[in-house]
Write a protein that binds this DNA or RNA. Structure first.
Lengths: 234, 234
DNA sequence: GGGGTATGTGTCAGATTGACGCAAAGTATC
DNA sequence: GATACTTTGCGTCAATCTGACACATACCCC
C-alpha cells in the first residue's frame, strides 16, 4: 500500500544505490495481424546493457503520471500510435532483470488493427520492426517472459471477450474474422460451427453491404460493441 | 522496460519531490473462510493520511527484493503467516492514490485455509481484524478498488482452477467443499450436479476414511494437486 | 455459358447440462 | 429397540449444446 511510505525505513537507507528505491517503468507488447501472422513490434536498443538487442518499447514512469498514460506516452513516442487498445498485463520486479538497477516494470499489451499505422522509429531507438510472435529474436531484459505472458493473455481473452475488435478494421468479412481467431489460437476452426457460436452470441452485427472480390461477394460485419465485453463462451 | 533507466530524464529531474521517481509498494488482500463467510484481513493504520482507517497490509518494496518476496515479508510482518498462497493481481499507479507521494502499488491476493492462523497485529499497525468482504469499512487509499478486484479474481479463478485448495484444510468433506464454492460464488449450487462435474474432472481424490458426526458419516476428500492447476470448466 | 473458388446454410448423433427424486447411514428420542 | 430426523450419496431424464460433416449459392474468369 502506501501506508508507510513517508519515512525511509532501514531498508531504503541501507544500500549503496544512489536512490535506495526501485524504479518504475512500463513496457508494451504491441500486437497486430500483419502478413497473415500475429506479430509484435520490437525496437532496437541504442544504449544500455542490452544495446543492439531487441525489446518492447517502454520507459520510466514519471512522477505524477498514471501508468496507463506512461504506457501510452512511450508507445506514441516510439511508434506514433494514438488510441490503441491498451491493457495492463503483469508487473515484473525481479531486481536482476536489469543489471544496472532495480527496475520494476509494468507490462502492457496493446492492440491495433493495422500494422502499417506505426511510423518509423524515433530517435530513442535505433530501429523498429515487426516480428512474428513465434519467431522472436533474442530479447533484452526479461522481455521474452513478457512476450510469452502477453500471447497467453491475448489467446485466452480471445475466448471469453470480444477483444478481437481491437485487431480488426471497422468492417470485415466473416472469413477475415475467423482467420484472426484461427491464427491466434493456433488451431483450425470449423467454419460452420464457429459461425454458429459467434453469431448466436451476438458479438457481430451484419452490415447491409458486401465486399466484392474474385469470387462470391462476402457479407460485411462489424462488432456490436467497440469496447471490451465479456461473453459466455466460445 | 528498463532500457532508458540509467540517466534521469528531464521528467525525473523536474518536480519538487525529494526523489523524482514514483515509489513501489505491495499490498496484499488476504482471504480466508471464517465464520461461514468469505473474509479479508484488514489492519488499522497508525500514521499517515489514512491514520485510523483500515487498509490491507503492505509496504514499500526494498531495493534488490522480488515483488513476491516483498509481499511475503509484509504479510508475515503483519500477520505472522508463512507459506500462504500468493498471487499478483494488478498494479495501481494513480499518482493521487496516496496524497503524500506517488506510490505505485502492486496488489496481491493471498489465501489461507485457517483464519485463526494469523497472529495478533505487529507494532506496525494499531490493530488487525477480519472483515466480511461484503461489509468492509471505509478503506484507506484506493484499497476498495483492490478489494473489488481481488474478489472478482478469486471468483473467476474458482471457476477454472483448483485454487480452492488454498482455502481448505488438507482433508474436508464434500459438503464443506461445496459450501466454499457456494459462498464465494454467491449462488446456490445443485449438490448432485456440482458433485458430478467436480468428480468428473478429477480435481479431488477420495480418502479411505470418513468423518463421523451427528448424522451419516461423510467421506473425506483432499485435492489431487496441491498446486494451482487449470481445469476445463465448472 | 461452364469451370473454379470462396461464401453461406443445414442436419444429425453424441456429449453435456440442469432439474429433480429417492435410498442410505448415522444420531437422537421416546 | 423401533421411529423420527437429518445429512450424505447416487441415478434418471429431457433439453440443450457441441462436433463432425455435406451441399447449395454467387460471383469472376476464361
Amino acid at each position: 500500500m502506501a501506508g508507510t511510505a513517508a519515512r525511509p525505513t532501514e531498508a531504503t537507507r541501507s544500500t549503496g544505490e544512489k536512490l535506495a528505491r526501485p524504479m518504475v517503468a512500463v513496457d508494451t507488447v504491441l500486437f497486430a495481424i500483419n502478413d497473415g501472422r500475429l506479430q509484435t513490434y520490437l525496437v532496437e536498443l541504442r544504449r544500455g546493457p542490452g544495446r543492439g538487442r531487441w525489446a518492447f518499447p517502454g520507459g520510466l514512469v514519471r512522477v505524477g503520471e498514471l501508468l496507463d498514460d506512461a504506457a501510452r506516452r512511450e508507445l506514441q513516442d516510439s511508434t506514433g500510435l494514438r488510441g490503441a487498445y491498451l491493457e495492463q498485463l503483469f508487473t515484473f520486479g525481479d531486481p536482476s532483470r536489469d543489471p544496472r538497477a532495480h527496475v520494476v516494470s509494468v507490462a502492457y499489451m496493446a492492440l491495433i488493427p493495422d500494422a502499417q499505422a506505426v511510423s518509423a522509429s524515433c530517435e530513442k531507438y535505433a530501429n523498429g520492426k515487426w516480428y512474428e510472435v513465434t519467431r522472436l529474436p533474442q530479447l533484452a531484459y526479461d522481455h521474452s517472459l513478457m512476450a510469452a505472458y502477453a500471447v497467453k493473455r491475448l489467446k485466452s481473452k480471445l475466448e471469453y471477450t470480444n477483444i478481437a475488435y481491437a485487431l480488426l478494421p471497422r468492417e470485415f468479412t466473416f472469413a477475415e474474422f475467423e482467420e484472426l481467431y484461427s491464427l491466434i489460437l493456433g488451431r483450425p476452426l470449423d467454419r460452420r460451427n464457429f459461425r454458429r457460436s459467434i453469431l448466436a452470441m451476438g458479438m457481430l452485427k451484419r452490415l447491409p453491404h458486401t465486399r466484392r472480390g474474385p469470387h462470391r461477394p462476402a457479407a460485411l460485419y462489424s462488432f456490436a460493441n467497440q469496447s471490451l465485453r465479456f461473453i459466455e463462451m466460445l
